[in-house]
Nucleic acid binder design. Structure first.
Lengths: 130, 130, 130, 130
DNA sequence: GTGGTCTAGACCACC
DNA sequence: GTGGTCTAGACCACG
């Protein structure tokens, strides 16, 4: 579990951590039962505040993604892979819906949106960064 | 210029005002040179504080969308339509790009994205709501 | 006396009127004893508010540049030419001093200022506008 | 970063703060990445309201001079030195141009302007005050 | 602790 | 009447 944080991109750091944990679970980098780095470890590795990591872990636990092992740390729950896979689709669907809503309000046609999607997708896959 | 404010949707009030002004300019409801409601008027109409409206107007002025005529009020600048039309496209393009980036990270194919776009677009246009 | 007003350049309209009256007196377009247009006339001609012209006239009278003729209007005072000629120099001297002060604070050398003066002067005299 | 505010000199307080921050960046007193005093600190030090400092910081951020790091504070952006140095030159150039324009309108020769510059510069450097 | 938003109410210059 | 500035004090999200 390596975490890449970009402070100053508008997305709260605790949320960036949450996403990356979920992403790792969804794609199988983190397996059910596997232990996560301690809040202190991850805080040092990602150069963020301990409280921030703790908040991310806490919210993941509330969502049923992580189990807290008494006095030992957090581990990936049995339900996590399902949750995370559903989650990533839902998140994308929601954000997409909100963008489309705005496009609709601005009288942009579905054709224009489609071509925007294609052109942006190309520019993203060509540089292949992130 | 009627302004509908939804306090509590997370978007700052002054930004909601900015968007609605820009939107009205982009679609021709507000013409170049036309006067906007005074800060006091709009504050009453939208049930928000005068300073909040003033901030929205000030930022629009800084962006070159509004001219402030001393003692007279605010009016739509000559460059406003261009700025606003570019603005709305750019905003949508940026948000779309960010969604696509996330889709890419989650190994979702462009076909899946396309079908998501189409299905969400349909559901939005059918209910036709705001 | 034709007055050209540029609302929206930051300089108060009443002050623009004052300057143009003084300028006309200093260069002899307005002679001692000559009557000025009525506030209403000038307001119409310059497309500004009557109160604004009235304020300009009032301040010019307070400065001794204009005499108010009972119920008839304003006329150029005997002392006006002297006042206006001194005034224009003083005004320029003051503004120049303030610019130089800022240049000094920003550690700009007198040589740089001199070359700025020359280059700006050239660009102003070439187009010869204003 | 010590801020000296002169309330009542006509220049808005938030603008005085902006200028002093930019000035400090331009002359190297504030380095790229360096943290600025918190809005509350600076408000106390300069004896002004927190909101006033916040406005200055916000506008500097909008200009790309400051980065706002969530929950951490404001810091000097990478582009700041360039922006600030260009800024100070442009501001002086603009004001100088406006003075020269007025001089031109008043039929003052470039020689007179030059000698004014020199004499005023001398009087400013001799007293060497702020 | 940090900045960000909002309200309420005051005072100002300008038209 | 108009916008512009400032203060005071509250609440919020983030670290």
């Amino acid at each position: 579990m390596i975490c890449h944080i970009d402070a100053g991109n508008g997305i709260p750091i605790y949320e960036q951590i949450e996403r990356q944990v979920k992403f790792s679970i969804a794609n199988g980098s983190l397996l059910v039962g596997e232990r996560l780095p301690s809040v202190r470890e991850l805080a040092v590795q990602a150069a963020v505040n301990v409280n921030t990591v703790a908040r991310a872990y806490r919210e993941l636990q509330q969502q049923g993604v992580l189990d807290s092992i008494r006095g030992t740390g957090m581990s990936v729950s049995a339900a996590a892979p399902d949750i995370c896979r559903q989650d990533r689709l839902q998140m994308i669907r929601d954000r997409l819906r909100s963008v489309l809503q705005e496009a609709l309000q601005n009288q942009i046609s579905v054709q224009e949106v489609r071509s925007l999607v294609d052109s942006e997708w190309q520019s993203l896959t060509q540089q292949d960064s992130g």
